[in-house]
């Protein structure tokens, strides 16, 4: 059986040594069922130990190994080598500063993530003795899809707004905020909606839908943002009606 080989053209950048990123080619044998991550790990272990990339679970749930493969954002542990021809380009995710090689800077995202208050907001914490909250399967379904995000950043690499407007909170974080707004256990929607209405919030989204197309977990952040826009408008209108009506206490 003749072993198939492919050439991986990998973006390299070491801030200690390089002014700008360069590429390095590795021709390596590949197995038929490999993912792109397997090829990178082969290079790291067998050819060039200086290659830096993040990975851990290799089962598409920890979200570490997002990269651009032939220009498209991919979760590399899920992306089959067999989808590509003899030459495959692997680069860091677009729209992020590069730390080194295929490792990108996540601090900006972490701030946006926190900004949407991704936790249950309640006026009064429930005591454990009160037991679990009732929530019907339908109520769960209202937010479940939006709770499936693994923070892999593919949607930020794909989003045309993120590339033009660095302050845009972005698909994953907005979808997460909306996930909490949709949860029957949460009372934080008024606070989050203020954030959503601000500059960089949901109304910055141009509904290009690129985020939902690249999402490896079918979270559909674009759908979440559209829902959030609508809910925002309705909540704003409702609050206006209440205010005008005067006494509501």
């Amino acid at each position: 059986m003749s072993q198939e080989t492919k050439t991986f053209v990998v973006t390299r950048f070491d801030p200690d040594k390089d002014e700008v990123p360069k590429t390095q080619s590795y021709e390596i044998p590949v197995e038929g069922d490999w993912k792109i991550l397997d090829a990178l790990n082969y290079i790291k272990d067998e050819v060039d130990p200086t290659l830096s990339h993040r990975w851990s679970c290799r089962m598409a749930v920890c979200g570490s190994c997002g990269m651009n493969v032939n220009g498209e954002p991919k979760l590399t542990c899920k992306d089959p080598v067999s989808n590509y021809g003899d030459t495959v380009e692997v680069a860091p995710l677009s729209n992020f500063p590069v730390v080194r090689d295929l490792v990108v800077e996540l601090e900006g995202f972490m701030e946006k993530f926190k900004a949407v208050k991704p936790w249950i907001v309640v006026a009064k914490e429930r005591a454990v003795e009160e037991g679990t909250t009732r929530q019907s399967p339908d109520e769960l379904a209202d937010f479940k899809q939006f709770s499936m995000c693994i923070n892999c950043m593919l949607c930020y690499a794909a989003c045309p707004v993120v590339s033009n407007e660095p302050d845009f909170i972005g698909p994953a974080a907005l979808a997460l905020g909306h996930r909490y707004n949709q949860d029957t256990r949460d009372e934080g929607a008024p606070e989050r909606n203020e954030i959503f209405r601000d500059e960089g919030g949901v109304f910055s989204c141009s509904f290009a839908n690129e985020c939902s197309e690249v999402c490896p977990k079918k979270v559909n952040p674009a759908g979440a943002i559209q829902q959030a826009k609508l809910r925002n408008v309705l909540d704003w209108a409702a609050s206006f009606v209440v205010k005008r009506g005067g006494k509501e206490s």
Binding site: V128, T132, T133, R134, S136, P137, D183, R185
Partner: peptide, 15 residues
């Protein structure tokens, strides 16, 4: 559960 974990539910809304 109080912190928002999306536990799967029975029809009556219990965990």
């Amino acid at each position: 559960e109080h912190w928002g974990c999306p536990w799967s539910r029975n029809e009556d809304g219990t965990v």
